[in-house]
Structure formats: C-alpha cells, structure tokens
Design a protein around this nucleic acid. Structure first.
Lengths: 215, 215
DNA sequence: CACTATTGTGAGCAATTACTCAGGTCCCGC
DNA sequence: GCGGGACCTGAGTAATTGCTCACAATAGTG
C-alpha cells in the first residue's frame, strides 16, 4: 500500500535523453496494462515488464503505483481543459444546438482513443486527495462553462441554473464513458445525435411552456 | 464439483435456525464493510470480524469473496425487478410526465438507502460472467420497458427507439448513482425534478418540430 | 445419556504484490 | 581514458490476503 511519503512527484528529474525515454515507456505501458487488467490487477511488475525495463527503474521515476495513474489522469485532464478553453473562445453566438453539439463532440473525441483506460481511471482510481482535487477542479470548470452558457444564450432557459449545469456536465461525461466502453458499445455518431437532441430540448424548454418544470 | 447451479452458490443449505442467522450476519457485515472500504480493501477477515463470526464460518456459506458481493447485488436487482414489474402493471394511460416521474422516483428510492454500497457494487464488482449476465439481463428488462413505453405512449416520439430507450435507462441509472453518492451530493428532490424535465422534453419532442432530431 | 449431523473456530498456508537495495552499466566533461 | 554521477538491474523482503483444515462446540434424536 501507499507509504505516506510526501507527494506523488517523480523522484528524479531526468538529465539525459534515455531517462525521458524510459519515463514515456513507463507511461505507455501503464496505460496499456491498466486498460487491460484494471487498476488492482495491473501490477507494477507487469508494467515494468511491458515497458521492457526493470522494476527498479520504474520506482526511480514514480514513488508508488498511485503516482503513475495520477500522471496519466492528469495528462488526460490537461488535454480536456485545453480543448475546452479553446472551445470557449468560439463565442456563444451560434445556435444552441451547434454549441451543444460542439460540447458533446469534444467529450466524445476525448474518450474515443482509449475508453477502457478512461473507465479504469474514473472508476477504480485510488481516492487520493490529490486526485480528488484535480477531478473536482475539472468538473467545476466544466460546470462553470455550461452555467455561463445557459445564462448567456438567448435560446436556453432553466429553473435552477446550477443544478441544470451539473446535470448536463454529468450526463455527457457519464454517458460517454458508459456507452462507449460498454460490452455492447453504441455507435458514437448515433450517441452524439441523441445526446444533442436530449440536451437541446432540455435547455431550450419543453413543447408546452417556456420556463422549466414547476418547483 | 457442485451441481450445475453455478459455482458461486452457497456451499450448504442451512438446516438450523442459527445457520440462517449467521448467513444474514455475514451479508449485513459485508454490506457495511464493502460500503466503507470498497471491494478490494473489504477483506473477508474484516467481514468476519464485523459479523462476529470466524473466518471459517464465512467460507462455509460462501465459496469465495466474489460470491458474497454477487448475492448482495442479486438481492438488490431482485428488489428493483419486482418494483419495476409492479410499476408496469399501472398501465401507460397517465400523462407522459407522470410515467417518467414514477420511473425516476423508483430508481431514486432504490438507491437512497446505501448509495456507497451501490457505487461499489456497480463500479468495483469483479467482472465475473455470472454478474455480467445478471446486470445485463436487468438492463435489458429496463430497456425493453422503456422502449415499449416510447412506442405505446401517444405523447412520446423518437427517431431511433432502441437507442433512445438505452439512453434513458443509462441516464437515469448513472446520474442517480453519481449525483447521490458524489462527495457533494445533490438534493434528491431537485435531481428528480430536473431529470424528469429533461427526459420528458426529450421524449415528447422538442420546441420546434414534432419529430425527433434530424438523422 | 449416547450418537450423529450440523455448525463454528482460528492458526496458518500459499500466493500475490508493492517496493528496496546493493551493485552493475552507461554517459559526459576533463 | 578516467572519474563521477546518472541511469538501470532484478533477486529479494515484508506485508497482505483469500482461503483451508483439523478440530471443537452445539443441536437434534432415540
């Protein structure tokens, strides 16, 4: 188990080229092993074996097993954050459905390369404070974006903006995870269409009244 | 080997009252331990300790650790199935929103007693064939119900009935799990309202056209 | 009570796993 | 080429865990 060493930072900074190469081999191998075996059964020895390095080398760059997964997840979140920031620049002046489609497609693209790994990272990751804080900040950023979208876009309404935003963010994230990595996965294009339809109708208001459901 | 019932059945049928009592103590303790520590860290010795029985007794009723969780999940699914069957009898002649509200409320009620345990069972359960088959049958039953609902109810439409049904089922199940067991849980009543609003608008058709979104 | 079937006990085994360390190999500046 | 640091090695360690088994206690029956 985790010995309470301070921090999950890499133990050493690489000074030579081969060191950096070793780091990347470890990460690539870990991604593959975690995706195939899950977190618990994805042992450090297996990772080292797949990376074709010795187990000792692995522990020169990562103080413990958790740290490897933390770095994998951090990289994933960073990519997502950057893409989201880029998208936010586009301005909310397009039709609501287009904005939502962009949002959904971003989530899909971000998960299509390795759904199994993502599933492992989300579901089986150790609940370390560091990881919780990272994911929580990510969620907050996304929620803030959607809330602003709901508030600013002329086509959208919601009774409770905060809860609606959280609902939208969670819906997209969870459904993409689940239905892509399911044993009987859905066609991503169809999933995108239905998700966009559902969310657009939700935010644009129902067929009867204009405001959201009565309290 | 044991008879064709499957490998995870209890090893012996209780013949005395105290045996049945022991079984229930094991289950109750397991539910508590799994909810508190997760599946991997919820060791069999810990379960036995909490049940105040010896580890040997535990293994007289369950052939291995997985079997305990399988029975817990089976019981949960059975309750859900029974409630769903009861609901299906009510007939689809009520307004669409009422039917959906009944569906959402059922899912909520079914998860409010022990969200943490449910989360562990759904996310961290071992992917044994037996378990996969059980959950898969449960999902299929629910999906069939929703599909029938969409097809039969006069207020509802959908371009692709199958995918819409799967979307609805997964949305409810996942959001209830996630947002109730989250570190910052939502108020169940509000969640219910927003979910009902979203799904009703989705199935009743958008504010513009009547048919579902373009292909 | 005597006898048997059922139920309960818990020390300990076998397997697994995260992680260490003593000592090797390789690279680079001088 | 040579000294020192960066990098790599992999058998071994300590700890944990699922699970067994020889035995003890209890309940039911005559």
């Amino acid at each position: 188990m985790t010995s309470g060493r301070g921090g999950l930072q890499p133990r050493k900074q690489p000074r030579q080229a081969r060191a950096e190469l070793t780091r990347q081999r470890i990460l690539a191998a870990a991604a593959h092993v975690f995706a195939e075996y899950g977190y618990a059964a994805g042992t450090t020895n297996r990772i080292a074996e797949r990376a074709q390095i010795s187990i000792g080398s692995l522990y020169q760059y990562y103080p413990n097993k958790d740290a490897i997964l933390v770095e994998l997840l951090t990289r994933h979140l960073d990519v997502g954050m950057a893409a989201a920031a880029r998208q936010q620049e586009e301005g909310p002046l397009r039709p609501l459905e287009d904005v939502i489609r962009g949002y959904v497609r971003l989530a899909l693209d971000n998960h299509l390369d390795d759904p199994q790994l993502l599933r492992v990272m989300i579901e089986q990751a150790p609940r370390s404070p560091e990881l919780l804080e990272k994911t929580s900040r990510y969620q907050e950023t996304r929620t803030a974006y959607v809330r602003k979208l709901i508030e600013d876009h002329p086509e959208s309404h919601a009774a409770d903006v905060h809860i609606a935003a959280r609902l939208v963010v969670s819906t997209v994230e969870l459904l993409v995870h689940q239905l892509i990595a399911a044993p009987d996965p859905l066609d991503p294009a169809r999933l995108e269409n239905e998700l966009v339809t559902m969310l657009t109708r939700y935010l644009a208001g129902g067929p009867r009244g204009e405001g959201a459901g009565a309290p």
